[in-house]
Design a protein around this nucleic acid. Structure first.
Lengths: 221, 221
DNA sequence: AGTTTTCGTTACAATTCGGTTACACCGCAG
DNA sequence: CTGCGGTGTAACCGAATTGTAACGAAAACT
């Protein structure tokens, strides 16, 4: 398993009910009680598979958090008080995956979470490319069965490319996903990492350069 | 446009509200008032982009219809009476895309429909013109299955034309879209690029010159 | 504290890109 | 027939982009 879920909800009672239920179901849960804390926490760690976010929050509210969450590719389920149709519409159109009105049944939330996770599934599976296998859980890479040592950042970069097989990724997309979107660094940094990955894995022609755009990892499905 | 939606709901008032709203929004709607009729109708025609289905129906109920709908790859939004949690869970786990409890706000239904349609959408789908396929996500172009290398600017230019099939684009429009509004350069630059694209793809007669105006990419829909 | 690892940046060579230009056409009006 | 505006096209060269190795700061580890 090892699926991480971020719960952002200021009402302690509700937060704890949600967190406990999720833990009981086997997820790894991180709780935040206001928007600023959530924001800070996200800057450090953004490998969540999902976030459950109350819209009304002290500090940054749910809508304010949405851009950050999106930039890390974390799907969001919004929570709000009953009948707030305007919020509902706004949340869904701005990119939330789903929406629930309080009070709600825990079971329904679990089902909806399950649904979203399955939609973006294939997460913790190993990924094969040619003679290379990426063990996403163990965070190791083997080529012809022999382990190749990748540095943490190189590994993350490779996984990002591998999860988006045959899709062109821009340097900013890679930077945003790996370093956080508030990171302001040279995009050439990406090039350097790609270069090292290529050399270590013999991926000179697997990771294709897309001039003026970024990179693409090629592999048959 | 031309998106077809199937509405299966036995209460005439509700059925007609939904159908009218959807039509007003620009969808093409087919209404059914019981499960058996829906089933029969589906046998003939199953190119719907979505189905809105009440669970409680005369004849086949919503759950019974689900396998058929799924087999045609039609996503489903279920409708049911308030508080029927068991149904809700069952519907979502068995493969409905979403779920709404009556009474609901029409606007919310519209938003959720929109969301589902966009999820399975075609914005970054491949574009076909004759024997040429533009893989917009991969940023590659193939002709008869063989990859043709286009330079970045050529690719962007081609996509711009292809996304505006059968529309005349002026040189300034192309310049503005590809180089940014503030770019001040010779419009002849466009000609050069078009020329290269034509030659590489054999598009001499697909990309038409509109004298004194610009270019148009011709293709049947 | 010392050592090792990691990682962002920089510099430079090699390559690629693309705006421009020059010239050949083509159709048309005078 | 000739001139002219507009277009097709190949070639050129400066500019932008990329691969790569090296460096040094920061972090992690001992």
């Amino acid at each position: 398993m090892d699926i991480k879920i971020l719960v952002i909800e200021d009402e302690e009672a509700i937060n704890s009910v949600i967190s406990m239920s999720l833990r009981a179901t086997g997820y790894q849960v991180t709780s935040c009680f206001d928007g600023d804390a959530a924001s800070a926490s996200l800057a450090k760690r953004h490998d969540y598979s999902l976030a459950v976010v109350d819209i009304m929050l002290p500090g940054k509210d749910g809508f304010a958090l949405l851009p950050e969450l999106r930039s890390y590719g974390i799907p969001v389920i919004f929570l709000t008080a009953r009948g707030d149709l305007a919020d509902k519409v706004r949340g869904l159109t701005q990119g939330a995956e789903d929406y629930m009105t309080k009070p709600f049944e825990m079971l329904e939330l679990l089902v909806r979470i399950d649904k979203i996770l399955n939609r973006n599934s294939t997460y913790d599976a190993d990924i094969c490319i040619r003679d290379v296998v990426i063990h996403t859980q163990r965070r190791t890479v083997t080529k012809n069965g022999k382990e190749i040592h990748l540095k943490p950042m190189e590994f993350d970069c490779l996984v990002m490319l591998a999860r988006n097989k045959n899709k062109a990724l821009t340097r900013s997309q890679l930077l945003g996903a790996l370093w956080g979107m508030e990171f302001e660094g040279e995009t050439r940094t990406v090039d350097a990492h790609i270069g090292r990955i290529r050399r270590k894995l013999g991926f000179e022609d697997v990771i294709r350069t897309i001039p003026r755009v970024g990179y693409r990892l090629e592999a048959e499905e």
